[in-house]
Amino acid sequence: MELSLPIDPAANELVNRDPLALVIALVLDQQVSMEKAFAGPYELEKRLGHMPDAAELAGFDPEALAVIFAERPALHRFPKAMAARVQEVCRTLVERYDGDPSRLWSEAADGPELLKRITGLPGFGKQKGQIFLALLGKRFGVQPPGWREAAGDYGVEGAHHSVADVVDETSLAKVREHKQQMKAAAKAATAG
Rank of each mutant, 00 (worst) to 15 (best):
M1V: 07
L3H: 03
L3Y: 10
S4A: 07
S4L: 06
L5F: 10
I7Q: 08
P9M: 08
P9Q: 09
E13P: 05
L14P: 00
N16Y: 15
R17C: 14
R17N: 15
L20R: 05
L20S: 00
A21W: 05
I24G: 00
L26T: 03
V27Q: 01
L28E: 00
L28S: 01
D29E: 06
D29K: 09
D29S: 13
D29L: 04
Q30N: 13
Q30A: 12
M34R: 01
M34H: 10
M34A: 06
K36F: 14
A37Y: 00
F38Q: 04
F38W: 06
A39N: 02
Y42E: 05
E43H: 08
L44S: 10
R47H: 15
L48Q: 00
G49W: 10
M51F: 13
P52D: 12
A54R: 01
A55G: 12
A55E: 12
L57V: 03
A58D: 01
G59H: 11
G59S: 13
D61F: 13
D61I: 03
P62W: 14
L65V: 03
V67Q: 12
A70G: 11
A70M: 07
P73D: 11
R77C: 14
F78W: 13
K80E: 03
A81H: 07
A81Y: 14
M82W: 02
M82A: 07
A83Q: 02
A84D: 04
A84R: 09
Q87K: 11
C90V: 08
R91A: 02
L93K: 06
D98P: 01
S102G: 15
L104S: 01
W105R: 09
W105Y: 10
S106D: 15
A108M: 11
A108L: 13
P112I: 02
L114K: 00
K116C: 10
R117I: 07
I118N: 01
P122F: 06
P122Y: 01
P122G: 11
F124Q: 03
F124I: 09
G125S: 15
G125E: 15
K126G: 12
K128M: 02
G129A: 10
G129R: 05
Q130K: 02
L135I: 15
L136V: 07
L136N: 07
L136Y: 06
G137T: 06
K138N: 11
R139W: 14
F140H: 15
G141I: 12
V142L: 09
P144H: 05
G146R: 07
W147E: 00
E149F: 06
A150T: 11
A151L: 05
A151V: 05
G152R: 12
D153W: 14
Y154T: 07
Y154E: 07
V156R: 08
E157N: 12
E157G: 11
A159Y: 09
A159D: 13
H160P: 05
H161F: 15
A164Q: 02
D165C: 08
V166A: 00
V167N: 08
D168M: 08
T170A: 14
K174H: 13
V175N: 00
E177L: 10
H178S: 14
H178F: 15
M182G: 09
A185R: 10
K187D: 06
